[in-house]
């Protein structure tokens, strides 16, 4: 139960929302799907003075093609990201990431923008965003800017979003034909956050490969494993990829789901598996 009072606004257009945000600054908390904000407010972990719901801003809910990019509105629900044909065709890694979030109800309500803005180290999208080279569009009443996914997370649940700013769109370069991708995560029980995530992309002809790792550091970590692809993915190459992931996970923390060492070891296993299955997927066409 939420016991602290707060003001509530539900603007129906983006400029209105940005104006409210400008006016109320740090007092205002944006509400998207509420799948993180609502539990946190209920538990008293956050106490918003004012909530601005974005749920009535239809113009923030879209997926469209723009030249070599896909543009995804921040309010697009996880279920729609998972099922969207454009995303399926040009950024399948993202669809996979979305389809593995929580459960049906969470996917029906939670949004891509809310999840990215929330920047939970264990959350699904960011490792994929990194691997995909996504750009995030931040808007405020004063203007807008674009931040590379790799520069977005500043620490545990802190991001590049400044007071008065809102994440409005995610831009993703379309994957070229022949790209392989694979999204792998380890969970304790279904519907729970991941212990470790590995989101891998191999470029056509195995020219390059990279793995976005999740929950092994305060933010997502990108590991470039292109150097280990060589001619074929033999055991040595896979071991080297695993080692690279293990090293990249040096900042892994311990929590109830797993200790730091286990996380690092799992980063090793899942990075290897993700790259392997991404190449398999590419080979299979």
């Amino acid at each position: 139960m939420i016991s602290q009072e707060f003001d509530f606004e539900a603007p129906s257009a983006l400029p209105e929302a940005l104006a409210l945000l400008a006016r109320h600054g740090d007092d205002a908390t944006l509400l998207s799907g509420g799948m993180s904000l609502m539990p946190m407010t209920t538990l008293g972990l956050v106490q918003p003075g004012m909530i601005i719901s974005l749920n009535h801003i239809a113009e923030l809910d879209y997926v469209r093609e723009d030249g070599n990019e896909l543009r995804i509105g921040a309010l697009t629900r996880h279920a729609d990201v998972a099922a969207d044909p454009l995303i399926g065709a040009h950024a399948a890694l993202l669809a996979e990431a979305a389809s593995l979030i929580g459960d049906v109800q969470v996917r029906n309500r939670g949004t891509i923008g809310g999840s990215i803005a929330h920047a939970d180290p264990a959350a699904n999208y960011l490792p994929a965003m990194l691997a995909l080279g996504a750009r995030l569009r931040l808007q405020s009443e004063a203007g807008e800017r674009s931040v590379e996914a790799k520069d977005f997370v500043k620490g545990i649940m802190t991001t590049a979003i400044e007071t008065g700013e809102m994440l409005t769109e995610i831009a993703i370069p379309k994957l070229a034909a022949g790209t392989g991708c694979s999204y792998q995560r380890l969970v304790r029980v279904e519907g729970n956050f991941a212990i470790v995530i590995a989101a891998a992309i191999t470029e056509p002809g195995r020219k390059a490969a990279r793995v976005g790792l999740g929950n092994v550091a305060p933010g997502p970590v990108l590991v470039d494993v292109s150097g280990h692809l060589g001619n074929g993915l033999d055991d040595a190459a896979l071991a080297a990829i695993g080692d690279a992931a293990f090293d990249a996970a040096a900042e892994a923390a311990s929590d109830l789901a797993g200790d730091a060492n286990y996380r690092r070891e799992m980063a090793r296993v899942f990075a290897r598996r993700a790259v392997q299955s991404a190449t398999d997927a590419a080979d299979a066409g």
């Binding site: 029980v189 279904e190 729970n192 956050f193 109830l256």
Partner: peptide
Amino acid sequence: LLTTTFMDYTCPTAME
């Protein structure tokens, strides 16, 4: 107590 919600106190779902 560190496990005070169903996020941390993980009950098995139909998948387990």
